[in-house]
């Protein structure tokens, strides 16, 4: 309030002085009237401009976040009928005849796929990041890996799907199923986790590594016990965000994972075909039967909740680790 009042006074004064100089010859009264008029108009013009800009940005901010709320509202509005109607059974039963029943196959499938993707992709990316950051000097090799990872992170997921189909399913002869689908998702995890791990390792002060070396530790021991430990909050965040992202990917799975109305029964072969939540949403929503539309939305609610849970876990865990370590 104070500030605004001050500003107004200043504005008026400047205006008055300018005008005053120009119109010195005029009568005192008319000069004063002019001054007041001009001052008021400048002031209100400026204020209006300010207000307009504020309104504009506020509107755009609303437009920016609106889709999220609309989406949530739509998904919940349509899907809640199923969630309320079937309750927990929706999560715990497999689809029956006519695809009535729950989505246990999809939940189980997504968890399995993410487990394979994470189990393969996370160690590869972390070790690659450790090698690049700790054992190579800045130079061509490091730049090449960083560039490749950045490009890889930007490649549309359908391309990963096509690659998984050609390379894993076809060339390597893995066939569709849990392994091919999980590995395709692993390819998608690698660039994100590699880069976030690398950034986290770079943040660890050189003097921490030196302290360990100066005690007679080998380099790998230093990396393992000190550097990675210090970088852990950043690494964990990167891993969980990458997992949260691939949990919702459909495109890479269409040609690689197949589909299944129950949990997979084998690791390779037709028995390893596996459903996933995004695939199920896509399949159900493309179906003309109305109750499947509802189920698709209900599945979406569950998926959003799961991704949200992973994001929150990333936040909480990283904050807790930071507090404990640093």
């Amino acid at each position: 309030m104070m500030v605004r009042a001050d500003k107004t006074t200043v504005d008026t004064n400047t205006g008055a002085e300018d005008v005053g100089l120009q119109y010195r010859t005029n009568g005192l009264l008319s000069q004063l009237a002019l001054e007041v008029r001009l001052a008021v108009s400048t002031r209100s013009k400026r204020r209006a401009g300010d207000l307009l800009f504020k309104a504009l940005t506020a509107t755009l901010a609303l437009v920016a976040v609106l889709p999220f709320f609309l989406l949530l509202a739509e998904v919940v509005a349509v899907g809640s009928a199923e969630l309320v109607g079937s309750g927990i059974a929706f999560l715990l039963t497999n689809p029956g005849p006519g695809l009535h029943g729950g989505i246990a196959n999809a939940i189980m499938g997504t968890l399995l796929l993410v487990a394979v993707a994470g189990g393969v992709g996370i160690p590869i990316s972390i070790f690659a990041a450790v090698y690049i950051t700790e054992y190579t000097r800045p130079g061509l090799l490091r730049s090449a890996v960083e560039f490749a990872a950045d490009v890889l992170a930007g490649i549309p997921s359908i391309v990963f799907g096509a690659f998984g189909f050609t390379f894993l399913v076809g060339f390597l002869g893995l066939g569709m199923g849990l392994v091919a689908g999980g590995l395709t998702l692993a390819f998608m995890i690698v660039p994100t986790v590699l880069r976030t791990t690398q950034e986290a390792l770079k943040q660890v002060p050189v003097s921490l590594r030196e302290a360990s070396l100066a005690l007679g530790a080998t380099r790998w021991r230093t990396t393992w016990s000190v550097t990675i430990r210090a970088a852990l909050p950043g690494i964990v965040t990167g891993v969980l965000l990458a997992i949260g992202r691939v949990m919702g990917e459909t495109a890479p799975l269409i040609f690689t994972a197949g589909n299944n109305l129950q949990a997979p029964t084998s690791v390779l072969g037709p028995g390893s075909w596996v459903a996933s939540m995004p695939y199920t949403i896509w399949a159900y929503i493309s179906d003309p039967r109305e109750y499947l539309q509802v189920k698709a939305h209900a599945t979406a609610v569950v998926l959003i909740a799961m991704v949200l849970a992973v994001d929150i876990a990333a936040n909480v865990l990283s904050r807790r680790l930071t507090r404990r370590l640093v």
Binding site: S207, L208, E210, A211, L213, A214, G216, T218, R229, A230
Partner: peptide
Amino acid sequence: YELRRRIGMVFQRPNPFPM
């Protein structure tokens, strides 16, 4: 490694391990 065990070092800035 044995050399560094027998010659300890303290650095300019305190650098305790994150443990």
